[in-house]
Design a protein around this nucleic acid. Structure first.
Length: 825
RNA sequence: GCGGCUGUGGCGGAAUUGGUAGACGCGCGGGCUUCAGGUGCCCGUGAGCCUUGCGCUCGUGGAGGUUCGAGUCCUCUCAGCCGCACCA
């Protein structure tokens, strides 16, 4: 083949990128002209810190393949890009270097813009924004005010997670194993007044609507577990001496007769009052003080032995009037339920551990169907067929039936009722940090808490000199900014100095993309309703809970406000696996980071993109190897040479799907081309099987090379053009170049090729012949051959006859088009 | 502890519905071109056995099972990874 010209990806990529840039090829208007269905393809927006890495290359290579495929299969595709620019890393960088976060963020955004353009990702750049720009965060603040008006944003004092290193509070979701998600420091509990979003109001809808989205099951499970809905009952235990009723939450009302003690959390406001005047008063005070000083990490350690002290009081078990002792113990959490529990040591492992440590009675009340139970043994299981024992009038009922019966009885007595509890907590959104959107609220001595007027938005982030965290927001130092007038009375007032969690910024950005230049509203509902929901969302599994839950909450709140019709932001979700190096996660500290840039420089973006998709299933982790990159480069060069060679012989003309002769190399090559169309189409439409799709194009190219002596120019032309067309979503520059060489046309303006069903069928097929399930031969038979013909053809084969000889054939299984299996004795 | 995912040649992986295991790529071996190597092009490549054949046996972490037939379904089990974790 002609070799004096070499595959030169840089020349090719620069050529097509400049065409796409100049002609604004990937921009899409909001005018829904024609009948084309819309498709919103979105990758999670990057956090602009440093340079793009391999994870970004993978994310955008996957998204771009989907976007291109959707466009060529007749959809109007919205594929925008932006930057999640506020947040701690930029601010910490500023503290270290003195460089303003705006400056370091700008540099990083430029690096992402360069990277994305050099990769040739098909983005509608006209819709680009950063969440740190006033034209964006103005509307983040506006959304906050709408939430505030509706009681969805509120301020309260609560025990919150405090990171001493970053000197800020954290959301529950940002505490991992008792440590700060960002810096790894053990978080402390602090009693502070903070801003919250009332996401718990949406707990049921967030749970139920998971059934309406097409997400990976494990992500759905993670969200479901995070919301943690538990059905049970609230039961009232009365403390007669003080005359106070203490409700507890339980999921096991059927075990009420087995309650032998009662435990309160150290944070429970009544603990000291209850113990006052008893012999335990000092011990309780000491225990509570100690418990409050412990880190949440220490307290969460399930391995340590249970501790606690008696309160010197008793409560009345409402089902049997029994007085049971009260304790304070740190295994009971104030945040969940009512901060107090009934303890049933026979049927709860934690209560069991406590009872054993304190010598408390263990009374089984649920037994297997045969009614036997070993005395004193913990018996936590709960299976079908269990019955109640030692349970007064409920004895003998099944546990399942008793649950309902006991709740109903309590309800009639006014001693309890059905209840549901959630693990989900309200979203703590205020941060004592600089680089975020200011919370648009004002404190007035006369009027109290007052919202900034909507027409005064944005509340601009002031310039400051010193970003260092001091336990209060750095914004407090900007006195000119802090001191303002009350929007209500005009008197002196001061601004809220906390900023919003970055997750607020990213909880609605996908809506702004639909209408990014709107200066009178966050978005036009008609426009957003046209594009939403996102048809395909693509990103890392690390956002399985936080970002995805917050965005879902926002959209539901917007729907309630009539701002959007969708109840869910992301119809389909794809979570990509990590790129590893020698099996290890890449990290700066390990020094095994590899950047896409040198590979793009050496082999071109198409090779880097196609390789990252070819390496394995995109939802799984994949190990980057330089040898593998070489292989994909060789393939693309091979395709390009094939195109150059055939174009020189056949000239540029339209592809002929029925081209070439109808026998021999021509027929086989045309069949291979139609097979590849079918394979790639199915791999893209039904699933994210990019690796096998690329492999199919490789097979087509190999077939063309093998048959290029015997096949006609027409057939070779169709095969090469089809390969170029099919590789386009993965290697767009090379695909466009080869397609243009062969046809003179622009491949992205061509419809996705359609496989001719007749070319997928064969007259003569090969089927397997087995004897007792073992492969003995393969035979060629007409595709429409009947059972008997297939069987007799199989029997004639020498190797088959040999294995049948001397045996009785008990059964013959014929699977049309697949195999024939002789079962012999 | 609870929940989930993964396990297939020397390596990454394929097998979409229970039907010919190992597509495609890497690596390795051989040939051709060139001949200095590389590139390029073609062929071979799961393991073992010998009687070298259109051969046989074994083979998808392990042990059982269902089936004419299991990488695929069921039971148990081992290893690695991930999520949640005193949530009553």
């Amino acid at each position: 083949m002609a070799d004096e010209r070499r595959y030169n990806p840089h020349e090719i990529e620069a050529k097509w990128q400049s065409i796409w840039e100049r002609e604004r090829t990937w921009e899409v208007s909001n005018d829904a002209d024609g009948d084309l269905p819309k498709s919103y393809v979105l990758e999670m927006l990057p956090y602009p810190s440093g340079e793009p890495h391999m994870g970004h290359l993978k994310n955008y290579s996957v998204g771009d393949a989907v976007a291109h495929f959707h466009r060529r299969t007749g959809r109007r595709v919205l594929h925008p890009m932006g930057y999640d620019a506020f947040g701690l890393p930029a601010e910490n960088h500023a503290i270290r270097t003195g460089e303003h976060p705006r400056e370091s963020t700008r540099k990083s955004i430029e690096a992402f813009q360069r990277g994305m353009r050099s990769w040739g990702i098909s983005i509608d750049w006209s819709r680009e924004f950063g969440t740190h720009e006033p034209r964006y965060y103005r509307w983040t603040q506006w959304i906050f005010l709408q939430f505030y008006k509706r009681g969805l944003a509120y301020r309260k004092e609560a025990a919150v997670n405090w990171c001493p290193k970053d000197a800020t509070v954290l959301a529950n979701e940002q505490v991992i194993d008792g440590r700060c998600e960002r810096c790894g420091t053990v978080v402390e509990a602090r009693q502070l007044e903070q801003w919250f979003f009332r996401i718990t109001d949406y707990a049921d809808r967030l749970l139920d609507d998971l059934e309406t989205v097409e997400w990976p099951p494990h992500v759905v499970t993670m969200q479901r577990n995070w919301i943690g809905r538990s059905e049970g009952a609230e039961v009232i235990f009365r403390q007669p001496e003080l005359g106070v009723d203490y409700p507890v939450f339980t999921t096991r009302p059927d075990t009420l007769f087995g309650a032998t003690f009662f435990v309160m959390a150290p944070e429970h406001p009544d603990v000291l009052r209850l113990a006052a005047g008893t012999e335990h008063e000092e011990a309780v005070r000491g225990y509570v003080n100690h418990a409050l000083s412990e880190s949440s990490e220490e307290r969460a350690d399930t391995e340590r032995t249970k501790t606690g002290v008696p309160l010197g009081r008793t409560v009345v078990n409402p089902v049997n009037g029994e007085r049971i002792p009260m304790y304070v113990a740190d295994y009971v959490l104030m945040e969940y339920g009512t901060g107090a529990i009934m303890a049933v040591p026979a049927h709860d492992q934690r209560d069991y551990d406590f009872a054993r440590a304190f010598g408390l009675p263990i009374r089984p009340v649920v037994a297997p169907a045969d009614g036997t139970v070993e005395e004193g043994e913990a018996f936590v299981s709960h299976t079908e067929g269990e019955v109640l024992i030692n349970s007064g009038p409920f004895t003998g009922m099944t546990a399942v039936a008793a649950k309902d019966a006991i709740i109903d009885w309590l309800d009639t007595q006014g001693l309890g009722h059905r209840s549901i509890n959630y693990r989900l907590r309200d979203w703590l959104l205020s941060r004592q940090r600089y680089w975020g959107a200011p919370i648009p609220m004002v404190y007035c001595d006369r009027c109290g808490l007052v919202a900034v007027a909507e027409e005064d938005l944005p509340v601009l982030l002031p310039e400051i000199e010193d970003y260092r965290p001091k336990g209060r927001s750095p914004l407090a130092a900007a006195e000119d900014w802090v001191n303002t007038t009350c929007p209500q009375c005009g008197g002196p007032a001061s601004r809220e100095t906390d900023t919003m969690d970055t997750f607020v910024d990213s909880a609605w950005y996908f809506l702004r993309y639909t209408d990014p230049d709107n200066e009178s509203a966050a978005w036009d509902p008609d426009i957003a309703n046209y594009w939403m929901p996102v048809d395909q969302y693509i990103g890392g599994i690390e956002h399985a809970i936080l970002h995805l839950l917050y965005a879902r909450f926002f959209v539901k709140a917007f729907a309630d406000m009539g701002m959007i019709d969708s109840q869910e932001p992301f119809l389909r979700l794809f979570t990509q696996g990590m790129i590893t190096r020698a099996g290890a996660k890449m990290s700066k500290s390990k020094g095994n980071m590899i950047s896409p840039e040198p590979y793009v420089e050496r082999y071109g973006a198409d090779t880097a993109r196609a390789y990252i998709l070819f390496i394995g299933p995109p939802d799984q982790d994949a190990d980057w190897t330089d040898e593998g990159v070489e292989g994909v480069y060789r393939f693309l060069a091979r395709l390009w040479r094939l195109g150059v060679d055939i174009a020189a012989r056949a000239g540029a003309r339209a592809l002929a799907p029925g081209g070439g002769g109808d026998a021999g190399d021509d027929l086989e090559l045309m069949r291979k081309a139609h097979w590849a169309i079918d394979k790639v189409t199915n791999d893209l439409a039904g699933r994210f099987a990019f690796n096998t799709a690329i492999a199919a194009v490789m097979e087509l190219v190999n077939e063309a090379y093998r048959r290029r002596e015997g096949a006609s120019d027409e057939a070779l032309h169709f095969a090469a053009g089809t390969a170029a067309s099919l590789i386009f979503p993965f290697a767009p520059h090379t695909g466009a170049e080869v397609y243009e060489l062969l046809t003179g046309d622009r491949v992205w303006e061509e419809p996705w090729p359609a496989a001719d069903p007749a070319m997928l069928e064969r007259d003569v097929i090969q089927i397997a012949v087995q004897v007792n399930g073992k492969l003995r031969d393969r035979i060629q038979v007409p595709a429409d051959a009947g059972r008997d013909d297939v069987e007799s053809a199989a029997r004639e084969r020498p190797n088959v006859a040999r294995h049948l000889d001397g045996h009785e054939v008990a059964k013959v299984v014929v699977v049309p088009g697949r195999l024939v299996n002789f079962v012999v004795r």
